[in-house]
Design a protein around this nucleic acid. Structure first.
Lengths: 162, 162
DNA sequence: GCTTGACTTGAAGTCGGCTTCAAGTTGGAC
DNA sequence: GTCCAACTTGAAGCCGACTTCAAGTCAAGC
């Protein structure tokens, strides 16, 4: 009961079913997010379970993880079968925490904006946008951490102003 | 009552007060987000109001705008005085809409994850993460649109899968 | 057995938002 | 008048997540 021909997808089929470009899938494989067997001629054949892994990665990205972090999370799930409730529980919970933090961050920003409408704001030294906003979200060196991240998370962005 | 020496900041002072690196401020100026006068020797001197503009830009980024979009929004506010409530109202409202959309998107993702815990999920063809997740948020070509954007917003990311 | 579309590779390009570098200039304190 | 930190410039580099390209190979339908 090993995988037979029906369980194997070409990269094109995987692309179509996952909604990703073949180039992206090749990139994912290079990063070790997914794995393939090869035909005699050297073409990739992906086990069906790869679809699950890809979906997982896309979800991880939506939660704000990098592909590198996604790989870490994937390593905690079984490679070839659907994850058990237990497998999944830990991951999903940590993701929910992240989501909650992101939501909280946005709520805070929203509240600040509301305050600013009330006060005819953006007056220096009084506006919440000036004084607190950056502390909460803009500590990083660029948009690559999305500015929606909470402070102190992830590979510490080197603060370069000196 | 033109600006006297006390109203002008060097780029270093602006950097310190805004929390941005001088290189970032130079970059912002190049993009037309902020403007400076020059000394006889060619050094930049920023009007104090620049602090407001910078704060505005940082807030815009947190709302998910690119610097280019931020420039557009800035153009709708007065350059040298604090914006009036009316000035500010329109901008803040559209931002709140954006924030609300982002929050809604996250809530949806969270609900999906919760569902997945219940169903011992990630089983192909039944899991919400597979079937709906990407439609809602992963239509873009990369993380540069944060994957938290709602579909159909912003400079349309060319869909390249042929 | 031929055709043709799907596949292969590595290298280079893209995007946004900066940072870093090198080499030179300014300006304010002493 | 001298010193040196703070400034100037353009070009190049970096990050993550891919895409694009060129030139060649595979596999499956006729």
């Amino acid at each position: 009961m090993g995988p037979n021909r029906h369980d194997l997808l070409t990269i094109g089929q995987l692309a179509e079913r996952s909604g990703l470009a073949t180039s992206a899938l090749r990139y994912y494989e290079k990063l070790g997010l997914i794995h393939s067997e090869r035909t005699a001629g050297g073409q990739r054949r992906f086990p069906r379970a790869t679809l699950r892994r890809v979906a997982f990665v896309r979800a991880a990205q939506r939660v704000g993880l990098s592909l590198e972090e996604a790989r870490g999370a994937l390593d905690r799930l079984p490679e070839d079968r659907a994850p058990s409730t237990t497998d999944w529980n830990g991951v999903a919970r940590s993701w929910q925490t992240r989501i909650d933090e992101q939501i909280a961050d946005l709520e805070r920003l929203k509240a600040k904006l509301t305050g600013c409408i009330g006060c005819g704001c953006l007056s220096i030294s009084r506006c919440a946008l000036y004084n607190a906003g950056d502390r909460a979200g803009a500590a990083g060196p660029g948009a690559r951490y999305l500015l929606t991240r909470d402070p102190g998370t992830g590979p510490e962005p080197r603060t370069t102003e000196g």
